[in-house]
Simulated scan of single mutants.
Amino acid sequence: MSKILATSTGTELDSAIDPRFGRSAYFALIDQGTGALEAIPNPFLDAASGAGTQAAQWVLEQGVDVLVTGRCGPKAAAVLEGSGVRVIEGASGSVREAVVEVAAEP
């Protein structure tokens, strides 16, 4: 099973998707096998610069397979996609809705 990371405005499955990747308030890590959610405050939220690429490196360290966000900058997307992480942009609604959508895709 895969690990999904969704950018989130809060710590719950019903929190809204944060439209920003590198400056997202939280990273919601969801294990598709167990359904477990771990909401982690974004350690790069207040970075002076390079928040997106730093966050992308962190995502890789977490073993994430799919990133769901509103928008991922080109440098961060290149880091993620170059390492095999599927990046889904344009997400909205709740973290729960986004995860259900990803799980339903072939």
Rank of each mutant, 00 (worst) to 15 (best):
V85A: 00
E97L: 06
A6S: 12
V99M: 02
E81W: 01
I17L: 03
G35M: 06
M1I: 02
V79E: 12
V59D: 06
Q32M: 15
A51H: 03
R23E: 08
A56K: 00
P74W: 13
G52I: 05
E38N: 13
I40S: 11
G63S: 12
N42M: 11
A76T: 03
G90F: 02
G84C: 06
S49M: 13
V66Y: 03
V66C: 07
A91P: 02
D31V: 14
I88S: 13
A77S: 13
K3C: 05
A91E: 03
T9A: 03
A103H: 09
R96Q: 12
A104S: 15
V59A: 03
N42C: 09
W58E: 08
G63K: 08
G63P: 15
G52N: 06
P106Y: 12
G70T: 10
D14F: 03
A16E: 15
Q54A: 08
A77Q: 13
A25S: 14
S83Q: 07
L29P: 05
S2I: 12
C72R: 00
G50A: 04
F44Y: 14
Q62M: 12
A47N: 06
P43C: 11
F21A: 05
A51Q: 01
G63W: 14
W58L: 14
L80A: 04
N42G: 07
E89Y: 00
G52L: 03
G33C: 07
E61L: 07
I40L: 15
A78Q: 13
D14N: 10
S15M: 10
A47H: 04
A6F: 08
E61I: 03
L37K: 10
P19G: 09
R71P: 00
A25K: 10
L29D: 10
E101V: 11
L29K: 07
A47M: 01
P43Q: 09
G22M: 09
L13F: 15
E101K: 14
T53C: 00
T11P: 00
L45N: 09
V99H: 06
K75V: 08
A39H: 05
Q54E: 05
A25G: 10
A48W: 10
E89N: 01
G70W: 02
E105L: 15
A78V: 01
V99P: 04
E61D: 14
I30W: 05
K3T: 06
P41R: 00
A103Q: 14
A48L: 13
L37C: 11
D65W: 07
T69E: 15
I17C: 02
A77L: 07
A6G: 06
S94P: 05
A16G: 14
G70C: 07
S15I: 12
L13T: 12
K75Q: 13
S92T: 09
A51G: 00
E81I: 02
T9S: 04
R20Q: 14
G10M: 09
G70A: 08
E89K: 01
V68F: 09
S8N: 03
L29R: 11
V79S: 09
L67S: 06
S49Y: 15
L80T: 05
G84D: 08
A77G: 06
T34P: 00
A98K: 01
E81D: 08
G82Y: 06
R86L: 09
G90W: 02
G35Q: 07
P19M: 09
V85H: 00
P74E: 10
Q62G: 07
R23M: 08
V95M: 01
I40R: 12
F21H: 04
A78R: 11
G35A: 04
S94F: 14
P106R: 15
